[in-house]
Design a protein around this nucleic acid. Structure first.
Lengths: 216, 216
DNA sequence: GTCTATAGCGGGATAGAC
DNA sequence: GTCTATCCCGCTATAGAC
C-alpha cells in the first residue's frame, strides 16, 4: 500500500478564510461543476458574504486555478513518491498506479475538479495546468520505456499506453466515492495489477528481468 | 478493425430542425459543457431563434436527455456488435474494446457529452442513463467471468476490472481528437491489446484455452 | 476583512403575431 | 414552425460603509 501524505496546498497558513474558500470550492465544483456553481454557493458554504470571495481571489476563475494548481501539485507528489520506491520500472509503475488511485479516491473532490474543469480555466491557466498533466504522462512514458528496455514489459506503443495509464488511474474518481480506507486500498491494489497487466508484466516473468538494476 | 455503423438517433426522420438542434447540442455541449452553453448558442448554430428550441424540446435539459439517450443507444450497439463476433471471450473483449474506442473517437462529441454531462440531467433522466451505462459494465463483467471460467483470463477482481475497462475505453475521448481514420484504427487496436493485457490474456496462452467454445 | 447593496449583464423560458 | 419581444430571475463583480 502507498501512503498519501504531503497534503500541503499553496495556501498561506495564517489565512483561514482563504483556505476555507478553497476547500469549499473543491467540494462544490466537484459536485456541480464550475459553471453550475455560483460564488454565492461557495461563500455561503463557509459562512461569508458573496463579496468576501473577491478579497481573497480576483475572480471565480482564479479560485478554480488555485484549486487546480494545488491538485496537480498533490498528484505530482504522489508520482514522485512512487518513482522513489525502487529503480525497478515494474515496482515504480505499480507504486505509481496504486498511489495515484489511492490519492484520487482519498481526495476525490480535488481529483474530480482537476479532471473535469480544466477547460473552464482561462487560456493561460489552462495551458499551465495541461503542461503539469503532461509531465505526469511523460514520467509514465519514461518508466514504460525503461521497463521495455529491461525486458520486463511488453514492447507496447509507448505514447498510447502512457496516455491510457494516465487516463485509467485518473478516471477512477468518476466511478468510486468512498471513505472506507480498506476499500480504497483494495481498489488501488487491483489497479496496480491491471496497469502492470497492460504492460504485459507478469509476476512469474520477473525472474527474466535479470538485467534490471535494484535500488542502491 | 471493427466497423462503426448503425448511427440511428431517436429523431423523427421528417424533422430536420429537430435533428439539427440535436447535432448542434452535441457539438456545443461537448465543447463548453451543458452549463456553459446557452439556448441561444445552440439555436444560432443552426440559424434559428432561441424560441424555436422550445418547439422541439420542452427544455434545455430535455435536449441533453435526448442526446444522452441516443449516445448510449449508439454505445449499446457497438457493444452488442462486438459480442456477436465470436463466442470466445477474448475475441469478444478485444472487439468490444476496439469497437468502443473507435466509436468514441469517431463520435467524440457525443462521447464527451455522455461522459461529462450525466450529472446535469434531472434525477429521473440521470437514473435512466446511468442504468444504461451500468448495463455496458455488466456485459463486460459477464465476458470477464466467462473468460476466467474458460481459463484464458487471469482470475481478476471482476467488479473492479469491469469498471476499469469501462472507464478506460470510455475516457479515450478526453485524450484524443482526430478525424484521421488510420489514427483512430491504430489507437483502437492498441486499446484492444491493453484491455486484453489487463485480463492477463496473452496470444501465446490462447492454446491453453482448449475448453473454450468456438462460434458455431 | 467583512458586510450590504447594487450595477450591469445574460440566462431560460413564454406570449403572441405571422 | 418560426419569428420578435420580453418577463423574470440570478449571475459575477464592484462600491463604499464599518
Amino acid at each position: 500500500m502507498v501512503a498519501t501524505k504531503s497534503r500541503q496546498r499553496s495556501t498561506a497558513p495564517g489565512d483561514p478564510a482563504r483556505r476555507r474558500l478553497i476547500e469549499a470550492g473543491m467540494k462544490i465544483f466537484a459536485e456541480r461543476g464550475f459553471d453550475g456553481t455560483t460564488t454565492r454557493d461557495i461563500a455561503s458554504e463557509v459562512g461569508l458574504s458573496p463579496a468576501s470571495l473577491y478579497v481573497h481571489f480576483r475572480s471565480k476563475e482564479q479560485l478554480l486555478y488555485v484549486i487546480s494548481l494545488g491538485g496537480h501539485q498533490f498528484v505530482d507528489g504522489l508520482v514522485r513518491e512512487a518513482l522513489e520506491v525502487s529503480d525497478d520500472p515494474a515496482e515504480q509503475m505499480g507504486a505509481l498506479a496504486e498511489g495515484v488511485v489511492a490519492g484520487h479516491l482519498d481526495r476525490h473532490d480535488v481529483a474530480r475538479v482537476i479532471n473535469n474543469e480544466v477547460e473552464r480555466l482561462g487560456p493561460d491557466h489552462q495551458d499551465e495546468i495541461l503542461r503539469m498533466r503532461g509531465e505526469v504522462t511523460s514520467r509514465i512514458a519514461d518508466t514504460i520505456e525503461r521497463g521495455i528496455a529491461a525486458g520486463i514489459f511488453d514492447p507496447v506503443d509507448v505514447p498510447v499506453t502512457a496516455v491510457a495509464i494516465t487516463s485509467l488511474i485518473s478516471d477512477c474518481c468518476r466511478w468510486y466515492r468512498t471513505d472506507d480506507a480498506d476499500e480504497v486500498a483494495h481498489i488501488a491494489a487491483q489497479y496496480r495489477r491491471l496497469v502492470l497487466g497492460m504492460l504485459g508484466h507478469r509476476e512469474d516473468r520477473s525472474g527474466r528481468g535479470t538485467g534490471l538494476r535494484r535500488a542502491g
